[in-house]
Every structure is written in structure tokens, then in C-alpha cells.
Simulated assay, not measured.
Amino acid sequence: MSRPVIVDAIRTPYGRRGGALSGLHAVDLLGRAQRGILERTGVDPASIGEVIGGCVTQAGEQSGNVVRFAWLHQGFPDDIGSTTIDAQCGSAQQAVHLVAAQVAAGYVDAGIACGVEAMSRVPLLANLGDGTVGRPRPDDWTVDLPAQYEAADRIAERRGLTRADLDAFGLRSQQRARAAWDAGLFAGQVIEVKLPDGTVVTRDEGLRDTSLEALAGLRTIREGGLHTAGTASQISDGATAALVMSEDRARAEGLRPRGRIVAQTLLGAEPRYLLDGPVRAGERLLERTGMSIGDIDLFEVNEAFAAVPLSFARVHGVDEDRLNVNGGAIALGHPVGSTGVRLIASVLDELERRDQQLAMVAICAGGAQVTGAIIERV
């Protein structure tokens, strides 16, 4: 059995809705990430066994296997197979899990896991169409599966989180992300994107100057709710890619492995709370490994809404100085099909900077699911 390792993980900058990257077709955007990971590692595209990537809204420009089209659009060898998956917001993380499983099983010795979402061009729910082919839920559906923003408020109420708690977390995400950018901490994971007009995009566009007073003045997403635009993830454009190889091949090619997956999971969450799955993922990962929360150095829990990482932290007793230490989707953006690789890239970078060993990554996902993994620095 081959031991899979993560050799590297990169991403494009994340553009805001209607921003600098909104003119790029999703195929072009993802292709740049695929090319970026190959160029940075020096791996021949012809030697890749398989490409698996995430995309949530597979409609219009993102339909028809966007991962395959991106690969072909870059002029890469046409005999390399590609698969596009939809595990909602956990899609890119699940792509990493699947490629690692292929390597572990010995079916391939190198693969690319990636993800994309051009949300400016293909809005969420665009794949529902005009209703002529029906809706995802049948007429007799009775499961209490709320809208995401309602679920986020339910989680806040469940954990006793106040509007002030959520606003404080939203401010912290912005402050940490800006500090990380100013200190150059994202330089290792972000590749530049040159636009057709010659403009070069090098930085995330979602960072905002704000304050607790400004956040407190925002209208809630739903009447009587708790979350606002300042405590929810941003609609964004972006792509990510990671190279996963067998450790033997990586070392034979002179590549230094950066991490390995100690344990991984894709779980169902409680439908009523929809997005509270990271709590359950944490429990499952610790059970599988025999570890405790104290064994984990860093945690990345996707900031779909502020209540999600705050709920995880309260249940598992995680200190804020180990959670989303460089900000998250509230500040950086959340191109939903791509985010899983961003979180993995972030923990790999931070473990190396801190000379630490273990990180947990968890991403709540639509349909009441969650992806999770414990990543070990190699």
C-alpha cells in the first residue's frame, strides 16, 4: 500500500463578486490553478494519473465536467482522466481525499486535487434551472433542512451565541486576514493571475476595513436573525489545486512532501442544524485516531457563517489562538467548490511557520454534510 503525501497546494487570489476575476471563465480560472501547481513543483503533466476537482454549481460555464475542460484548455495531455465532484462546500477537500485514496490503493502514483467556483458568473442555485425539469426535493419532502442562513442562526441559538459574539468573530477574521496579508503569510500559497488586459491580480479582494460599531449597524440576513453580511462568507471567484503523490515517487523526483492525511471523513450532519457538521467531524476524527483535542496544534473550520467555527470551538474547547489563525472565508472569500484546498494550504503553511505537527480541517456543506481531516506535517 502506497503512502500518499501532499507535495504542495496553491490557489489563485480570491476575487470579490463582480471584481477583478469576474471576467474569467471558470475553465480558464481552474486551468490556471492546475498549471500553477505543476509549474511550481516541476512535475510533468503527462505523469499525472488522474485529476479530481470540486465544483458546486455545475451549470452553464461550469457544466459538462469543468475539471476536464480546464485540463484540455491548458493544452495538457488528453489521455489524463478528470472527474468533477459535488460535495457542496467540501468539494475540494473531498477531491484531496479521493486522490489520496487512489494513491493509497496503488491505482495512481500522482494526482491533482482541485476546485473552482466562478460565483460572479454562475450564481449559487443556477443549476436548479427554470423548474421545467423539476426540483431537488419531491413534493412530499418532510425533512427539516433549512436555508443556510437560518441554520446558522439556529446554531448560534443552540450554543448560546449572541449577535455581539458573532460580530466579534467577524471582526477578528478581517483583522487576522489583513495582518496575514501584510506580513506576507499568504505569499507561499497564492499564485498571481494575469488578466487579458495585462492587469496582474495578486491579492484577495474581500478584505474590509471595519469595526465592531460598523458590524453592529448591519442589517441581519433574515428578519429577527443574528448573522449579517459581516459575519457570513463572501461570494467570490477563485480556484485551487494540490499535488498528491506516493511518498516514494515524490522523494524519487526530489520533491519534499509537506503533509499527509492521518484521517479523513465525509459525514452527514444533523439536518435541522445543517452546517453544524464540523462538531461531528471533530468527534469522528478523534475517535478514529485515538487523539484528543489537545494533540491538535491548529484548526481550520470554514467560516461559512461565524456561528459554525464558534460552535466547533465551544463544543470541543478550542482556544481562539489555535482556530483560523489567519482569518477565513468571512474576510478572504469562499468560492465554494475551491475552499477545501485553501484550508489545507493554510494549515500546511502555518504548521511549517510554527514548527508544529498536526492540524484539523473541517468544512460544513450543503445537504447537511461535512468534510474533515487531520493533516500531519511531514
Results as ranks from 00 to 15, higher is better:
4 P>A: 13
7 V>W: 04
12 T>K: 06
15 G>F: 04
15 G>Y: 05
30 L>W: 04
31 G>A: 09
31 G>Y: 08
32 R>Q: 15
34 Q>T: 12
41 T>I: 07
41 T>F: 00
45 P>S: 11
47 S>T: 14
50 E>V: 15
52 I>V: 15
53 G>F: 11
53 G>H: 11
56 V>A: 02
56 V>D: 05
58 Q>W: 04
60 G>K: 02
60 G>S: 10
64 G>L: 10
65 N>V: 13
67 V>Y: 03
68 R>D: 08
68 R>N: 10
68 R>Q: 13
72 L>H: 10
76 F>H: 13
77 P>M: 10
81 G>I: 14
85 I>D: 07
86 D>F: 01
90 G>N: 05
90 G>A: 13
96 V>A: 06
96 V>I: 15
101 A>H: 01
102 Q>K: 12
103 V>D: 00
104 A>T: 02
111 G>E: 03
111 G>Q: 06
113 A>D: 09
113 A>H: 08
118 A>Q: 15
119 M>R: 00
124 L>I: 13
124 L>Q: 06
130 D>H: 02
131 G>W: 01
134 G>M: 06
135 R>E: 13
137 R>G: 02
137 R>C: 05
143 V>G: 02
148 Q>S: 14
151 A>H: 10
154 R>T: 10
157 E>S: 03
159 R>D: 12
162 T>P: 09
166 L>M: 09
167 D>Q: 12
170 G>L: 11
176 R>K: 15
177 A>Y: 10
177 A>C: 07
180 A>D: 14
180 A>K: 06
190 V>Q: 06
190 V>R: 01
204 D>Q: 01
206 G>H: 04
212 L>V: 12
215 L>R: 12
215 L>M: 10
221 I>S: 03
221 I>Y: 01
228 T>W: 10
230 G>F: 09
236 S>Q: 09
237 D>Q: 08
243 L>H: 05
245 M>H: 09
250 A>K: 06
257 P>C: 07
269 A>S: 15
270 E>N: 04
272 R>I: 03
275 L>I: 12
276 D>I: 06
283 E>G: 13
284 R>G: 00
285 L>V: 06
286 L>E: 03
288 R>P: 02
292 S>N: 11
292 S>E: 14
297 D>R: 12
298 L>P: 08
302 N>R: 03
307 A>P: 00
308 V>Q: 06
312 F>H: 05
314 R>A: 14
322 R>V: 13
323 L>H: 04
323 L>G: 04
331 A>G: 11
331 A>L: 07
342 R>M: 01
347 V>D: 03
349 D>P: 03
354 R>S: 10
356 Q>R: 15
361 V>I: 15
375 I>S: 02
